[in-house]
């Protein structure tokens, strides 16, 4: 039920966000059209951090409660993390080419994003090489917690290392047109709801997966 409501809401919001991003928001003086990438690039970047924290949180909850539902949440968060880091990296690269003249500038935030993506992939590789269900959940939870702790360290070390990226537009008193800000909020909301919808679908699938695994086990035991 919740899933259906979220699905419809995300469809409506996405269409509205497209309208806000492409038509409602005013043109930017220096960059022209390519700046409109911001409306989906920035929320994707933020959501990838949210996924990393969700993954760590699910890990902590699993270690405390030992309930596999938290492990399912962790998988969902990690998959969303891969989706969001991939989207923000690729759009960032497409945006950097006309503005900075290069595809990849090794600036602070893009490097951080790349590392976050590598962390999510490492998380999946770890899961793939752990055969036992219980052990897989436990060790992946520990790795998720360690990865979550790493995010602020990565953030500051890379921040101090190099800064070419514009300062965050939502945090701090950067000067941004109120119409642009509104459009950015709308697209952030739309993408958040979409991710929440995908997460609920993923959790439902994970439950079925476990049931299938259990039944397969039963059938094999019977044979």
């Amino acid at each position: 039920m919740t899933s259906r409501v979220l699905g419809i809401a995300s469809l409506v919001l996405m269409v509205f966000a497209l309208y806000m991003a492409l038509i409602y928001a005013p043109q930017e003086a220096q960059q022209g059209t390519p700046y409109r990438i911001i409306y989906f690039h920035v929320p994707m970047g933020i959501l990838s951090f949210v996924s990393a924290y969700l993954l760590g949180f699910a890990g902590i909850m699993f270690l405390i409660k030992r309930d596999l539902k938290w492990d399912r949440l962790a998988i969902g968060a990690a998959e969303l993390g891969v989706l969001c880091t991939a989207c923000s990296l690729i759009t960032g690269s497409i945006w950097a080419k006309p503005i900075w003249g290069v595809w990849w500038a090794w600036d602070a935030r893009i490097t951080l994003q790349l590392l976050l993506g590598l962390f999510f992939i490492a998380y999946f590789m770890l899961r793939a090489y752990l055969p036992d269900r219980e052990k897989r959940a436990k060790l992946a939870a520990v790795f998720g917690v360690l990865g979550m702790i790493d995010v602020p360290f990565n953030y500051y070390s890379i921040e101090w290392w190099a800064t070419q990226h514009p300062q965050p537009v939502l945090r701090g008193g950067g000067s941004i047109d109120p119409d642009m800000r509104l459009a950015l909020y709308v697209s952030a909301l739309a993408l958040t709801v979409t991710c929440a919808y995908l997460l609920t679908r993923r959790l439902a699938i994970a439950r079925v997966e476990e049931e299938v695994e259990y039944l397969e086990h039963l059938v094999h035991a019977h044979e």
């Binding site: 989706l83 989207c87 690729i90 497409i94 945006w95 699938i205 079925v208 997966e209």
Partner: peptide
């Protein structure tokens, strides 16, 4: 570049959703 970036975002979300539903169907 705008078209490319937007198609990447929507394409990625679409493929992700499609994979989810395909997986659900197979599991059921």
């Amino acid at each position: 570049s705008l078209v490319a970036a937007y198609s990447v975002i929507f394409g990625a979300i679409f493929i992700f959703t499609w994979l989810l539903f395909a997986r659900q169907k197979r599991l059921e």
